[in-house]
Computed example of a mutant assay.
Amino acid sequence: MNTTTRTKPWLAQPPHLFWSLQIGGWIGYFALNFSAMLGDGKPWHYVYYSLSTTLIGLVVTSLLRLGYRRLWHLPALKMALGSAAMLVVAELVDTKLYTEVLFTFCDDCRPHSALGYIWYFASRLYVLLSWSGLYFGIKLARQLQQQKEAALKAQAMAHEAQLKMLRYQLNPHFLFNTLNAISTLVLDGRADTANRMVGSLSAFLRYSLDSDPVQRVTLAQEIDALNLYLGIEQLRFGERLQVQMDIDAAARDALVPSLILQPLIENAVKHALAKREEGGRIEVEARRDGDTLDIHLRDDGPGCSEADSARPDHRGVGLVNTRERLRVLYGERGQFSIDNRLPHGADVHIRLPFEIAKGN
């Protein structure tokens, strides 16, 4: 059975916050009321009057809060009407208690007509209205803040899910080709080479599955993972695959998304090397350019035709996933482009904010 626990909005407010504001506010009311009494020439024993009226206000508003909490989940109109009715009832009780205390200390303050009682009612209503306004204002502000935090959390979770989906789309052709190559090596009696390829494949898959697509790694770690992949491909293609790495020392500590380069290299192997009998060359270059990490992945294959470049999915899903991961992670701060080289070949260019891990 699927059960869902729903939390009412009014339960989310920490009680210590209310009581801190409630007690602090009424202490301020007491200080203001008593100082006004002294300023008006009243004797010191009026401190009991100020203390009594303060306690009345504290108790009445605390009970009023219980009623407001019960109405909070209702539609706006019903909540407003219910709150108004509760406020009138609370004000009648408050005025009754207030005047009883007042007349105990000041017999001359007793009014001689109903208009005087209306004045006392209106003056005390102003206090409760002010308290109610603060109560609903603070409560609404907290609810809006909680909704904003929930929306940001949901957005972050959606981005994380999207990144994981993009990163875990491991190309089945790579696994198929590698396993097929291992099978061929075994049949040809090249068990040592097949064993090395199995070890490299195992290490690469372990790194691929253990790495978190949301977290970032240093470029040095990314190059190490890339070398695992290239080691497998070089066992497949032998001297047909030539690789050149040119990684600036200042760029090695830069943070990059995990396995962001492997799909690009895989794409280059598939389109620039595998279909050519003579093989091909792949170059990886990384430099720090001020506050930017500049990465180039080049090959000497046929490049991209204008028809291919016009399509958003040209040269494979790996490029699309890489572009989308960079967009989700960096927005406008990241750049991704593909250009043709002369006389032939392709150049994948990535520019990211240069950031290093804290403590480095």
Score class of each variant (00 low, 15 high):
residue 5 T to H: 08
residue 5 T to D: 00
residue 9 P to R: 14
residue 20 S to K: 09
residue 20 S to E: 06
residue 29 Y to M: 01
residue 33 N to T: 12
residue 33 N to A: 14
residue 36 A to M: 14
residue 37 M to R: 11
residue 40 D to Y: 09
residue 43 P to S: 05
residue 45 H to T: 07
residue 46 Y to S: 07
residue 49 Y to R: 03
residue 56 I to W: 00
residue 59 V to Y: 00
residue 68 Y to M: 10
residue 71 L to H: 09
residue 72 W to I: 09
residue 81 L to C: 13
residue 82 G to A: 02
residue 85 A to W: 12
residue 93 V to N: 01
residue 97 L to Y: 02
residue 97 L to C: 12
residue 101 V to N: 02
residue 103 F to N: 06
residue 112 H to N: 15
residue 114 A to P: 02
residue 118 I to C: 14
residue 120 Y to C: 10
residue 122 A to R: 07
residue 125 L to R: 01
residue 125 L to V: 07
residue 129 L to V: 13
residue 130 S to N: 06
residue 133 G to W: 12
residue 145 Q to C: 00
residue 146 Q to I: 05
residue 150 A to Q: 12
residue 158 A to N: 08
residue 163 L to G: 08
residue 165 M to T: 15
residue 175 L to F: 00
residue 180 N to L: 08
residue 185 L to H: 00
residue 188 D to H: 10
residue 191 A to M: 13
residue 197 M to R: 00
residue 199 G to K: 11
residue 204 F to W: 04
residue 211 S to A: 15
residue 212 D to H: 05
residue 212 D to W: 07
residue 214 V to H: 10
residue 216 R to K: 15
residue 228 L to Y: 11
residue 230 L to K: 02
residue 233 E to N: 07
residue 236 R to F: 08
residue 237 F to H: 12
residue 238 G to S: 00
residue 238 G to H: 01
residue 243 V to I: 15
residue 243 V to R: 03
residue 244 Q to D: 03
residue 248 D to N: 14
residue 251 A to C: 03
residue 252 R to Y: 00
residue 254 A to D: 06
residue 254 A to Y: 07
residue 254 A to N: 06
residue 255 L to G: 00
residue 258 S to G: 13
residue 268 A to H: 05
residue 269 V to N: 01
residue 269 V to Q: 02
residue 270 K to S: 09
residue 287 R to Q: 11
residue 294 D to G: 03
residue 297 L to G: 07
residue 300 D to H: 06
residue 306 E to Y: 04
residue 310 A to G: 04
residue 312 P to V: 15
residue 314 H to K: 07
residue 317 V to A: 06
residue 319 L to D: 04
residue 328 V to R: 05
residue 335 Q to K: 14
residue 340 N to P: 13
residue 342 L to I: 10
residue 343 P to K: 05
residue 347 D to G: 03
residue 349 H to L: 11
residue 352 L to D: 01
residue 354 F to T: 02
residue 356 I to L: 10
residue 357 A to Y: 04
residue 360 N to I: 10
